[in-house]
Nucleic acid binder design. Structure first.
Lengths: 208, 208, 208, 208
DNA sequence: AATGAATGAGATTTCATTCAT
DNA sequence: TATGAATGAAATCTCATTCAT
């Protein structure tokens, strides 16, 4: 008896234990694909090593499941942003703020993004799916907003895609900073403040 | 009493195995630390597996050598930028242009940065040394320029460190794009153009 | 509050891999620590190489287990001897006879003793534990008997510890002879007869 | 121009560097055959690794040379003892005293004997040659003395070979003690005193 | 004769995967 | 479904031996 308003997005075949995926995400994010040991995943998931194979055929399979599973919440965000009919600046602030809050702060997401970057040579299909389902749509969305604003004369001429990269870049930098340099003693970045100040700056800089 | 201008960074003990370091950089950047096979490194360096151990005690040692070895050219760049006495905007354009040209485009450097990010949990000492010798000094440099410009009234109030992140972020995004998404079919970023347009934007946005 | 009479010596964690320890003892005794190949141990134990690592972390760990495991039966012997309240001569005859029968003749024990001697420089902790748990207590026991006998006037003056070495020495010589020279054609020693004749001799020689 | 009274015993082919043999003896005695590294031998001998191969074909060859080379001084001792025409007790005291002084105290000799014992399974030819040239002749010598003394009625009936083992055993025990247990804190044995007291004891015990 | 960098065979160790229970 | 002992392929690392100099 599923709730009626259930998201239509395809679930994994029935009861793929969320605990296993959660544990695997942790371990993969900490160690990378190769260095992650399935025994550790099993231990953290509270199951036996053998049990993993009841749900996933291979380690690579589990890895793919982890990385693709992390897509859907992000997809929700992108879609949410897309449907909201709000003015240009407000939409950008919303979008970047969302990244700043949800994405930069959530270790699960920064972990997966780090994995996609780190393992893109060994598992290019993951880069592909992230690009196609999350990154490119999100980028298109922002780019589209800018194009519209340019048409209305609210934004000066310039490659809208490059504007989008200029807006998003510092958010990626924040993630990397948090994952890589803060743990070794670097001064933390106040991501919310960065998002605000940076948007102030580029929005002003993008004016005609 | 070192000769003036001498690079401070100690070279690896052996000068010969530059080929080994080059080969190892390639393989580590392609596969990551764990997935890289020393046999592959040896083959690309044109030596036997055993020969690696004449110069590096363990695989981790070779890895550390690769990553720390990639520091010194970047250190040179940062120091070069520091000594040039030029006006604020020009200095930033120089610095970011340098990143855009040499750093973002050079597979050897993007590869190492990706490694530092990917392996920061397994080899935190590498994150530490990169932060202390390259990342933080570079950031300080840019932040210092901004502080000066603010004192002269050329830049509006605002956290100078966050301005610096706002300027640098898209360069990191470009690296990641190049390493991760271009190989799976994403439309390339014209990094030089991005650097230009982004600087135009933020410099304008940072004006009082 | 341990049950009385319980062996003090902690058993190896796993009870199953007694076969591994037995096989390892064989191979180590035949070849020494370094020359012993774990593949050979595994084959004789009827398991795979990998299985050894389910029970012992390293080759050195397995080696230590083999050598310390051989302690407890000897400890039992020493303790058995200690508790028997019998006259001086009879006690010595019992003890030396025990050495002659069980210890000198049992390939498992002579093998371990040879290993302790041969590897004492590379694994001094084994010499330590053998000395502390078996050799020194056994020696103390014999020395104590002699001291008592001297007090009663049954044994002439003289360093009781040196008397003990004089009694025990030929037993060690027998072990070495059996292990080293008999296999290359030396005429065997009748250890029981040696024990008897030697005790006759030294007991007579120790009389006042 | 050799001195006329030169011992007739065959020397190694000309100039086999004594330094190499001495260094090899040290390293083999410390570590055993397998664990000894030729690089260490070369370093202690003050030559290069390659130079070893100018004098010895293989590691095993060097090992055999070390162990057989240590025979001749011992052979000299045995022969010296044999030729001296002295009364029974005095001969035994001389022989055992010689063992006690020269053999037990000389690390070079105890080291080789330990090697012969430890490696007898891997290099049985060394056990053979030691048995045939040193051990058995020495034993025959002592046994012969005892047989003569028995004929003269100076020694009571009993297997003369077992008497010999009874006399020699504690000397072997002393060597083992020195090599194995003293380094880990065991109280040293005063070997000279042991030799004296033990001979007093067994000579008295062997009287008719 | 001598060097020591280089080789490559062989040993230990790891761990994803299987399978009897 | 679930377990976890066991496997075995593959990777790291060692070091006796060779050989160009």
């Amino acid at each position: 008896m599923l709730p009626p308003g259930e998201p239509k997005f395809r679930r994994r075949p029935a009861a793929r234990p969320a605990e296993i995926l959660a544990a695997a995400l942790e371990v993969f994010a900490e160690r990378g694909f190769q260095a992650a040991r399935l025994e550790e995943v099993a231990k953290r998931a509270g199951v036996s090593k053998g049990a993993l194979y009841l749900y996933f055929e291979t380690k690579a399979d589990l890895f793919r499941a982890v990385v693709t599973d992390a897509i859907s919440p992000n997809l929700q965000r992108v879609k949410g942003m897309a449907t909201a009919a709000v003015p240009f600046e407000q939409a950008l602030r919303m979008g970047v703020g969302m990244l700043a809050r949800a994405v930069v702060t959530d270790r699960r997401i920064t972990g997966v993004i780090k994995l996609v970057i780190a393992e893109s040579r060994n598992h290019p299909e993951l880069a592909t799916i992230w690009h196609e389902t999350v990154v490119d749509p999100g980028l298109q969305l922002v780019t589209g907003l800018i194009v519209e604003a340019q048409k209305r004369g609210e934004v000066r001429p310039g490659d809208p895609r490059l504007f989008a990269f200029g807006i998003m870049g510092p958010m990626l930098l924040s993630m990397v900073w948090r994952e890589t340099f803060e743990p070794v003693g670097a001064e933390p970045i106040d991501v919310a403040k960065l998002a605000d100040q940076h948007l102030d700056t580029v929005l002003k800089g993008m004016r005609p």
